[in-house]
């Protein structure tokens, strides 16, 4: 589904990604772990289409298409979804209007008829229940005045509404208490099928107790330095990141 080949990217002349190789197939859950500043969120942003980074080398293919040629909105319509680490507040835009516009665009792209008002509201209701989102939130402006937990639930809710092929969760666990974490993770798990895939970016192993990965990668200093199974995540939890850093100094030396 997703193939990243030798991806190098920089911001303001500073290289952040230094040759990433990653392949994710349908039905798989991949986790990317790594210390702060290793380039995890940059990778997520680049896949979603954030234009503040310059790609200097490499390519990203999504279902055989060159992803880097697509606009941000076309990537979303093609089936990529980024759950933001820090969801943006958009004063004045209600969640209902926002989702209505997004779902319409997705359906148009897929050559489907747009939903009627009642079909749409039914879909909203169904997906809200998935993340135990309170009804009062839908009339409110997107993320405005939401708590950390509400913002993350809202991300998973939008994910459920748009039913993406590739779900990228960027530090979705940050700022969540254990109950909210469980609800958010349950939501993500319920959306899992053999046809879609997930890329879970996290600093801590905690989230991976709930969303169990098939493959775990360790990103350090702009490169994937280790790939393994979920046991790798356990090891990182126990030993921290220092041994990775040390090993890599040895590699560089």
């Amino acid at each position: 589904m997703l193939k990243i080949k030798n991806l190098r990217a920089e911001i303001e002349g500073k290289e952040i990604l230094k040759g990433i190789n990653l392949e994710i197939n349908a039905g798989e859950v991949h986790a990317i772990m790594g210390p702060n500043g290793s380039g995890k969120s940059t990778l997520a942003s680049i896949i979603a289409g954030r234009d503040i980074y310059t790609i200097t080398e490499g390519c990203i293919e999504f279902e055989g298409k060159n992803l880097l040629d697509l606009s941000v909105e076309d990537r979303s319509r093609a089936g990529i979804f980024l759950a933001f680490q820090y969801p943006v507040e958009i004063p004045g835009v209600s969640i209902t209007n926002f989702m209505r516009a997004a779902v319409d665009e997705h359906r148009k792209f897929q050559g489907l008829e747009t939903l009627t008002a009642s079909q749409f509201l039914k879909l909203m209701k169904e997906k809200k229940e998935l993340v135990e989102m309170e009804a009062k939130l839908e009339g409110r402006a997107v993320n405005e005045g939401f708590s950390g937990g509400e913002k993350k639930k809202n991300e998973v809710f939008q994910m459920a509404m748009l039913d993406p092929k590739l779900k990228i969760l960027d530090e979705t666990d940050s700022g969540l208490d254990i109950d909210a974490l469980r609800i958010v993770a349950d939501g993500v798990n319920k959306l899992k099928t053999t046809k879609n895939a997930s890329l879970v970016i996290t600093h801590y192993q905690r989230l991976l107790d709930y969303i169990v990965p098939d493959v775990v990668h360790v990103l350090y200093n702009g490169k994937i330095v280790k790939t393994g199974t979920k046991e790798l995540a356990m090891e990182l939890e126990e030993r921290g990141y220092d041994w990775i850093k040390k090993d890599n100094y040895t590699l560089i030396d």
Partner: peptide
């Protein structure tokens, strides 16, 4: 707000329509 614009676009809403949503808001 460019961050908000990116957020809306990342949900599949075209740039122009995203701007209109924000101006309306």
């Amino acid at each position: 707000d460019k961050e908000a614009l990116f957020y809306l676009q990342s949900r599949g809403i075209g740039e122009k329509q995203a701007k209109i949503l924000m101006l309306n808001a």
